[in-house]
Design a protein around this nucleic acid. Structure first.
Lengths: 352, 352
DNA sequence: CTGAAAGCGCTTACAG
DNA sequence: CTGAAAGCGCTTACAG
């Protein structure tokens, strides 16, 4: 078995290998040093099935002495499961998802998992292709954004049997796991806060128009309808990507189309920040003449002039919780709460 | 060999597997369908060594018909090389690195490589640990930020023999590859632009104090010294992480310590944006009373009031070029230019 | 609680 | 240009 090894010089000595030895310290080496069989080493290391304490100690000593680290590729091939978790997010250019990712990555890394990031650009076809490609890598787990995806993509997830957590939205679906908050309720809450401050002609301005943005729009609609203030001509939905510049443009567009508007609720803080800056430029008094509200509480919103009122969304907490849930699922444990709602917070600062 | 396969129902039929068959379509299956040996399939697929055209066609037909996709884990184990590229960046919270990452990821993905992202938090120990962990995954390539790292980390890269490209800085080092721009020259160029507009009491305000920030500080020093305007008390270096809020605080700190300052050069746009906002709040006229300059041209800088003067840095181009260089190295090709300087652009907008 | 055998799905190293 | 054999470094499935 290890005949060719016997003829080889120590691993450290480069280029001296005969056949295909990679110079790596293997399970075999550890087993030999500890005087046990390879399977025992494997079991001792993974904590799978009980191994006699003294053997575990001997294995551990050999591992430390030789500096052994398991080979992820061999492990993946033999067990059909890698130590990688694939995370699919729509965009890297929205700080929201970067915060989410950062939290996921930190939690997973400390548990020994690597993160494979896939950016879907809000494109179902791209998501499907990424899923197909990542699933080949036998990921140990999967984190995906929201529930809207092609039937084919959903089918890939389901049939892969890879543990999967859905993030950013809430759900009651059976057999799936999720952590997030109600986008609809958040949209409604901010709208109600605006109404509570006496605003009546409230516009809703949004970009990107992804599923979660539309859910927030529904919350806005519900709140305004309940207050008898709903006017469909006050919805400004632009499918273009979100940006500060677009926020400024939307402000002008809203004011041109509906000069009597007394508040604008933007679906993301970058738009609202851009609008605030544009208002400054145009000499439009905020909040006296016009209230401006955003969403997500991105960095800088508290530094605006006036500070931006917005909805704080718990993306870091969502990332941490998603990782925690996934870790349990990957261990084969069941989840007491398959769906977690982490809520949100309406932050009224100076702009409303 | 495939005895247990013979007893198995088709791959699609779930749970029907006997021994360890994963239900996956394998090289074997393709070989059998095409009527050739597995090695021939392997070679036909990888384009390694010439294979008779008609065999290639038969193999391709079988692949298409069976929907075969190579198993990355098996490939990595057998060849000691995976289809993953590890990218090490300091932070995810700086848009600069997100842009870089996005570009790298796109280029690599279209070439069939996955990206493994490691966030070092500017900590040499973290970088070393990440390197150690990622190297175990037999990455096909490596992209790291800058040249400042622990000797141990540098040693890991060198002895791994994994192709590696260094990004964000320029260098003349032998045997390594890099793509970036001169941070020093960029710092100097903006300082000279400020001098050219008649500013004389120019402060340098920086956060994080990473190697590249300090290189920009040197460029600033050189420019001011050459103009006979250098005053060491006008350097405000804060090791805290960069943020809009810190930018505002730094503005106040500079003005309190040196009221006669007529310009502040911030080492990153988020600081400068925060300073601009604080100036608005404090009623400090920009650029009349005080010129404000930033670095990197991050999103929103052109929307500021007044628009922020800054240095546009080509991080997306760096990402694309790094990926292109790495792709060549991974193919075993040599690089005509081991070091690429992509330059920068001083952008004078309204704030100076 | 421990182990000998076989296998995961590819590629390398030798031959011809 | 093509192939039979062995191997990459682990874990699964069976036994005891």
């Amino acid at each position: 078995m290890s005949a060719h090894r016997g003829e080889t010089t120590p691993a450290a000595e480069r280029g001296a290998r005969r056949r295909r030895s990679s110079g790596r310290v293997t399970l075999q080496d550890v087993a030999q040093a500890a005087g046990v069989s390879p399977i025992t080493v494997s079991r001792a290391l993974r904590g799978e099935r009980a191994v006699a304490p003294d053997l575990v100690a001997r294995v551990q000593a050999a591992v430390d002495q030789l500096g052994y680290v398991p080979d992820p590729a061999a492990r993946a091939l033999a067990s059909s499961r890698s130590s990688q978790v694939a995370v699919l997010i729509p965009l890297l250019s929205n700080a929201l998802f970067v915060d989410l990712l950062d939290a996921v990555q930190r939690s997973l890394l400390s548990a020994g998992y690597q993160t494979l990031i896939g950016v879907t650009h809000y494109d179902p076809a791209e998501e499907e292709a990424l899923l197909r490609s990542y699933l080949l890598h036998r990921p140990a787990g999967l984190i995906v954004t929201g529930f809207d995806r092609s039937p084919a993509a959903a089918g890939l997830i389901a049939s892969s049997a890879v543990p999967c957590v859905h993030v950013m939205e809430t759900s009651q679906r059976e057999g799936v796991y999720s952590v997030g908050f109600s986008q609809n309720a958040a949209g409604r809450a901010m709208s109600e806060a605006l109404l509570a401050r006496g605003r009546r002609r409230i516009a809703f301005a949004a970009a990107q128009l992804d599923p979660r943005t539309l859910q927030r729009a529904e919350g806005y609609r519900a709140a305004l309808q309940a207050a008898g203030c709903y006017d469909p001509t006050l919805e400004f939905l632009d499918p273009a990507p979100s940006s500060l510049a677009l926020g400024g443009a939307l402000l002008e567009r809203v004011l041109a189309a509906a000069p009597e508007v007394d508040a604008i609720f933007f679906n993301n803080d970058d738009l609202a920040q851009g609008a605030l800056l544009a208002a400054l430029r145009l000499g439009i008094k905020v909040p006296e003449r016009l209230a401006v509200a955003g969403f997500n509480d991105l960095t800088g919103s508290d530094q605006m002039l006036p500070p931006l009122s917005t909805v704080r969304t718990p993306r870091s907490e969502i990332g941490r919780e998603a990782a925690a849930m996934l870790l349990k699922l990957m261990r084969g444990e069941s989840l007491a709460e398959p769906h977690r709602d982490l809520g949100f917070e309406v932050l009224m600062r100076g702009s409303c």
